[in-house]
Design a protein around this nucleic acid. Sequence first.
DNA 1: CAATGCACTTAGAATCACGTTG
DNA 2: CAACGTGATTCTAAGTGCATTG
Length: 753
Amino acid sequence: MSGDHSHNDSQIDSGSRVNDSHKHKDKYKDKEHKHKDHKKDKEREKSKYGNSDHKEFSEKKHREKEKERIKHKDGSTDRHKDKHKEKDQRKEEKIKPKKEKENGFASPHRIKTEPDNDDFYHSPKSLKRERDNDETEFKPKKIKIENDRVDKKGKKRKQDEDTKPKKTQKNKKGEVADGKKKAKKEPEEKWKWWEEERATDGSKWRFLEHKGPVMAAPYEPLPSKVRFFYDGKQMKLSPEAEEVATFFAKMLDHEYTTKDAFRKNFFKDWRKEMTSEEKSKITDLKKCNFNEMGEYFKAQSEARKAMTKDDKLKIKVENERLLQEYGFCIMDNHKERIANFRIEPPGLFRGRGDHPKMGMLKRRIRPEDIIINCSKDSKHPKPPPGTKWKEVRHDNKVTWLVSWTENIQGSIKYIMLNPSSRIKGEKDWQKYETARNLKKCVDRLRNQYREDWKSKEMRIRQRAVALYFIDKLALRAGNEKEEGESADTVGCCSLRVEHINLYPEKDGQEFVVEFDFLGKDSIRYYNKVPVEKRVFKNLQLFVENKQPEDDLFDRLNTSILNKHLQELMDGLTAKVFRTYNASITLQQQLKELTSPDENLPAKILSYNRANRAVAILCNHQRAPPKTFEKSMQNLQTKIDAKKDQLSDAKRDVKSAKADLKVRRDEKSKKAVETKKKAVERLEEQLMKLEVQATDREENKQIALGTSKLNYLDPRISVAWCKKWSIPIEKIYNKTQREKFAWAIDMADDDYEF
DNA sequence: CAATGCACTTAGAATCACGTTG
DNA sequence: CAACGTGATTCTAAGTGCATTG
């Protein structure tokens, strides 16, 4: 599917989050009775096509073969063993006495530390690990638990515990000696979990200890000078009602507060918090005046900004303390960072797009709502004084530490680990391996769905066309959603007739399909794509006799599609196509765009362009930053200034040269040299600025972050950096480097996705 | 097999932190 | 040193997909 994505360009700048613009409001509003006709459709279709269910594909054979190939590739199994022997030896060397006690983690588990290989990126080839070329190494299901660590009772794993690399020890001392400043750099140590074996029994951990969540700060009533008015008259609200009122007041200059649904939902929920007296008085939101409250909060945040350095520092220190205490857990002998250790504070629900529940009150979470998950033999987190947790459980088949049920949708929220953690990293790695597996069989799969376009069964044709879209356009799967529970958005399987237009001919191209729908987060997907004639004819068929609000693929849903995919390849689901196409596109684009003799900024521009191609493919849009135009102008000003400087410098060179001609002495010669240097420097600076401008312009409404973080096999980027001697820091910031530590350590310059 | 529940990934916006500039 | 702009970080909503239930 190479280079096939250019048509997506048209998506961009056709406006994002469409519900906000009137133009489209009508189109997506009032769909109260949308797709109610599925049953009807299905009947209709059935009678048309009959139900012949034969013609199953014996793809299984292929799959077997595929598996065989994987197994035999380069005898990785043996290597694996060797490697682990080595590792064990290493382990024995790093005996170290326990030291740190901070955090109040009770358990005696020694936290393993690893050498702080900050230079791992630039490390010479010889340090390269066997794993590097080991494409098929990732076998999550095949590996047993290490014996010395299995321990049901949680009695300590002697061997591991007492191990620590000497180097780290030294580092630690150094830090201590250096005093406070360095301590901030945290005693973090780099554990190479990717060199270890993985559990096979479905357990996610063997030991888990943490301090529980940080509860939301209690409500602080407003000072009495801050007044609320109803119908022009001042009114003192009960604390409960006041709190909810402040939520609204804080959003006063947000567009939300102008939306009917938001106001309606807010008012309804607010009234629930009022005393009966308040309830009887306050009957119309329009008569409520929250301005003083709003001003108060604005002033507060101004005050916070204007705080003295000292006070700011105090806050920072306190935050740091909280992070140190609650921001980490111990999982299987390692201290790991928690992603979101704070309970979500109460507030007004901010749904995206045209969310029917926007403005509803998001309840305050109490300890009694919270389920704690940890090891039996760990020191359990204690609830705030005078309260109880809802439950403390010990489920090591899941990765979360804390959960609660949220009151808007009734869904469960979790506290989980940071992306840099083993548990997330392994999963991420696995995701890319699955995508690479798809690469191996994608041709076969494509041939198959092309065949299926001709099937006499409607459901198979629909499946095949949907899969084609998912593959070609990187559409999301499109699960069904409950109506009225959230904004009306769709993915591939849930596309409706109204979301496409068919043009036998358009703009000189044949068989054009125009997509226009709202996808995840109510981001608009707009695209005009020429498709193969067969696809086009099929679509005409699918649309026939249907209402606009009927499902395009009435015989298909994600569960059917995924079941099919699972049969074609182990671990294959619809979303794997997105990962695969994103990563393969990056790889191709990098190959195509990088020119060897360009300088560093130009190379990075090429990288960003490759990244951008992916973001466009995946439709990762952003609202153009409010300051965009201005910042563009600023850049241009800088560029112009630089140009002036440059021409001045050039003139200087000329005059210096003239000078030299006359005088012919060393001094003038030197002068010429320095001037020339200055010109070069300026030229480079100018070039850098221009590249920056191009990059920014092209990025106006495209968000690169999402694809970088979630879709692009980091090893591709790492390999590219190594190949062109680009410092990895130019591509990944600190957080990203932490998340992708496994890839940075693992991938070589010749890594192929 | 549809509905529901659960766990987990993916997403853009909001907010924060920090360096630069005037 | 305040204002500003920007990249990083935080926040939490909104998806996917699998398991369970009825």
